[in-house]
Amino acid sequence: MELHLILIFMICASIMAVEIKDLISSVIALSAVGLGLCLAFLILKAPNLAITQLVVEILLVVILIQATIKRDLPLIKDGRWLFNTVSTLVFIAVFLTFGYFSLKELPSFGQPTMRVSQDYLANSLAQTGSVNIVSLITLNFRGFDALAEVAVLFTAVIAVLAITRKTGKVYEK
């Protein structure tokens, strides 16, 4: 029940974030979506994800306010509305179709298939010596996922620095 209330709140806030004209109000509405997601993680009993979501959301709001508010953003309103609407509707239809078929195959909520996770629950403490099973699975059993995550972050740092470097930005008239 609380989860549905939070989901409705998140949908309302994200619609507000898209539709509002003022940029700083839009950023505040976006951060409300992130706060709702953090509460949803807490209700679903995932404190690891809740902490990470809250902290990343704070960093995101600071970067958005500092980096984008004072810039002029080009806003294109006219032209090609028919093509845009039709392509949006087609993509929504494709997504809903595939989502329906794939959601039918999933086990129902709260009753996961326990073949792999039984093994994790039974042997993880003896094999690795860590109590927190979530961080143990992400860092030890599924260590290559964490490696790919680190690679993505490293690529992001290099790419941002390459785009915003000072040399090479000489404009000639």
Partner: peptide, 26 residues
């Protein structure tokens, strides 16, 4: 048995990387 060690290394990586991204963007 390297969960704690991986945590420390990832925290150094994420802290330094996100602060460099903030510096670059702002």
């Amino acid at each position: 048995k390297s969960v704690a060690l991986s945590d420390i290394v990832i925290s150094v990586m994420v802290g330094a990387g996100l602060f460099v991204i903030f510096l670059a963007l702002v």
